[in-house]
């Protein structure tokens, strides 16, 4: 039964073919009524839209750190516990780190000048350690994070006003591996 249908179909197709051949003859061609569009002959390839991850991978470590994906956190005078208003910053940093699973970071603890060199070395490390513990509590693996203390040797501001001191009591997040 199936074979019969196929034979009928082929026969029908052949008939239509011969029929179309018959129509060929000396007829005048009709004037083209539509306008053909002439377009650029260079292949048009758009700059691909990079995902955030691809964009990040393209940058050097230095550029990535300048871009500021990870935000600093600040501390109270003589203290190393994470302040409530700094927790959202750490949450954002943790989210970013979870999204970029290969990134390894160095957290630098810094102090203002109103502590001694010796005590500030320990205090700076305590601050970095607090930030480390908080990130770990948010699911960041501790082996992705290193900490270092600079005490008061690397202030960002030289002033002796409270704003300068505030800016200097910080933990900075530096990307060291992508």
């Amino acid at each position: 039964m199936k074979r019969l249908f196929v034979i009928i179909f082929i026969g029908f197709a052949l008939l239509t073919f011969f029929d179309s051949c018959k129509k060929k003859g000396p007829e005048t061609e009709p004037v083209q009524e539509t306008v053909e569009r002439v377009d650029e002959d260079v292949p048009k390839v758009d700059r691909p839209v990079l995902t955030e991850e691809e964009l990040f991978q393209k940058r050097s470590l230095e550029e990535a750190n300048k871009a500021g994906y990870l935000k600093k956190i600040y501390f109270d005078f003589d203290k190393y516990d994470i302040k409530d208003n700094m927790k959202p910053v750490l949450h954002r940093n943790a989210d970013w780190l979870l999204k970029h699973g290969h990134v390894e970071i160095l957290m630098e603890g810094h102090c203002d000048e109103r502590g001694t060199f010796e005590y500030n070395m320990a205090l700076g490390e305590k601050r970095a350690e607090s930030a480390l513990n908080y990130l770990v509590s948010l699911g960041i693996k501790p082996d992705r994070v290193k900490i270092i203390s600079y005490g008061k040797t690397k202030p960002v501001m030289k002033g002796i006003d409270e704003e300068s001191h505030y800016q200097n009591r910080r933990v900075e997040f530096v990307i060291i591996k992508k």
């Binding site: 070395m121 320990a122 700076g124 490390e125 270092i148 203390s149």
Partner: peptide, 9 residues
């Protein structure tokens, strides 16, 4: 002399 953690003073 010591290379783990912060070492000083």
């Amino acid at each position: 002399l010591s290379s783990r953690g912060t070492n000083y003073s």
